[in-house]
Nucleic acid binder design. Structure first.
Length: 104
DNA sequence: AGTATGACAGTCA
DNA sequence: CTGACTGCCATAC
């Protein structure tokens, strides 16, 4: 277990999110056992560019808002990826977010 | 070792 | 509903 294992855990959980589903930082943090470290989850995903193919577009904040889209290469990229999986986006918010929310 | 930052979450105005 | 502040955890400098 390295000190960066936290990142690995985040990546692992994010990769576990099935297509057409979305998850929140808080749930992931809770799954990691840190619960209150939702901010750190975002930090981990911030380094996701250093890792291979992390479906970070499926991770949104508690409101289902695509807060992280600004960190993608293209703002439309995250939205397109989600819509491609059947997730409708309106004003950067996930439609029927609660139904599509994936809970570990 | 202490300070600053961060793709959050929760609460208050 | 939106905006601002605080609290928590981990990393970077």
């Amino acid at each position: 277990m390295s000190k960066t294992d936290f990142f690995t855990k985040v990546y692992k959980v994010v990769k576990t999110i099935p297509p057409g589903r979305v998850s929140t930082y808080g749930l992931i943090a809770n799954k990691l056992g840190t619960g209150l470290s939702a901010r750190t989850v975002g930090w981990a995903l911030n380094a996701c560019h250093n890792d291979s193919s992390i479906p970070a577009h499926r991770v949104v904040n508690r409101n289902g808002i695509l807060t992280g889209k600004h960190h993608f290469k293209g703002f439309e990229l995250m939205r397109q990826l989600l819509e491609n999986e059947g997730v409708k986006i309106d004003d950067d918010r996930v439609i029927d977010f609660e139904s599509k929310l994936w809970k570990p």
